[in-house]
């Protein structure tokens, strides 16, 4: 076990070279609806129980199912009104269980990235060959259902092995949503490939704000607005990224969605300064324009540590 994953180098926020998003924009905004399938009777993983108490967990399972049956449509129609395209964090087995939801996303030209097969199948304990099988399955399943080649990854339920990021880079993924160390993208130190660490977010993720921090809807909208205002201010110096990761089983509850819309309206009023994009579009722009200059800046500051992830 390593003390430091060595997946990226220290890169002080102050004094970085300027990133400018397409159209001279200061902030790249993306929205990531998690479209997930939690199994009713998931198998055990030695390191994590799927549900805190017992299996099955009828209340938790059915609340996730509410997200699929009721929630996604509400959220899609809200995003439609603001011309926002989602970047779907997808448990790919949902393509088999609920293809209607996938069709609704495809119709809207949304992007898909992999969030594993099920949110109840964890990476802990997998061999690299097994993780590769998950990636093959993810790529093939989404390609078949949507025609898209996925370029992003968020490990299922945020569970990893030491190999996860090397494997996704090797499979020509462009971005990882697994790391939370920054408000700007940064190259990851994988053995091969060109993998960007993409700012996703736990702090303004509805699972954290509603389920962990116990915020009420007004407070959630308030912190989203403050978060956006601060990152936009800083984006003038060098382009920032803001993502709102969402879960329809939480945000699309009838007592929450209207209040959430206040934050969305605030953000979408800043069309002059904000690039409304998908994860892949942001990753591509960064890879094409800022990958080399970022590495050069890290090197110039004398903080490049060498090696690759989990291999100093």
């Amino acid at each position: 076990m390593k003390a430091d994953p060595n997946l990226y180098d220290y890169w002080p926020y102050a004094g970085r070279p300027k990133i400018v998003w397409p159209g001279g924009k200061k902030l790249a905004f993306w929205i990531a609806p998690n479209i997930e399938f939690y199994e009713f009777m998931p198998p055990n993983n030695t390191q994590r129980q799927p549900w805190p108490n017992a299996i099955p967990n009828v209340q938790q399972y059915s609340q996730r199912d509410f997200g699929n049956r009721v929630g996604h449509l509400r959220l899609m129609e809200l995003l439609d009104r603001y011309n926002l395209r989602g970047s779907v964090s997808l448990n790919v087995a949902l393509c088999d269980h609920h293809p209607e939801i996938i069709e609704d996303c495809v119709k809207r030209d949304w992007e898909f990235f992999s969030h594993g097969i099920y949110n109840t199948r964890y990476s802990y304990g997998m061999s690299p060959a097994q993780e590769q099988e998950v990636l093959n399955d993810s790529i093939a399943t989404v390609e078949k259902a949507t025609g898209q080649r996925i370029r992003g990854y968020l490990a299922p339920a945020l569970t990893h092995t030491e190999s996860t990021l090397d494997l996704i880079a090797e499979n020509d993924f462009w971005y990882s949503c697994d790391l939370f160390q920054d408000d700007q993208p940064q190259p990851l130190k994988t053995k091969s490939g060109k993998l960007v660490s993409m700012p996703y977010s736990l702090e303004v993720n509805d699972v954290i704000t509603y389920s962990v921090m116990g915020m009420d809807p007004d407070r959630y909208s308030d912190i989203l607005i403050r978060h956006f205002d601060q990152l936009l201010l800083e984006g003038e110096r060098s382009g920032t990224v803001m993502c709102i990761p969402l879960h329809a089983y939480l945000v699309s509850q009838p007592h929450r969605l209207k209040v959430f819309e206040k934050a969305l309206a605030h953000i979408c009023a800043h069309t002059d300064d904000v690039w409304f994009a998908t994860g892949k579009e942001i990753a591509e722009h960064f890879r094409d324009n800022y990958w080399d200059s970022t590495l050069a800046d890290i090197k110039a500051r004398g903080v490049a540590a060498g090696g690759t992830g989990f291999a100093p």
């Binding site: 076990m1 390593k2 994953p5 997946l7 390191q47 994590r48 802990y124 945020l158 569970t159 990893h160 092995t161 030491e162 697994d178 790391l179 939370f180 736990l202 989990f310």
Partner: peptide
């Protein structure tokens, strides 16, 4: 979370 807890790191 179990190792490697990249999230909290």
């Amino acid at each position: 979370t179990p190792y490697p807890d990249l999230r909290h790191f």
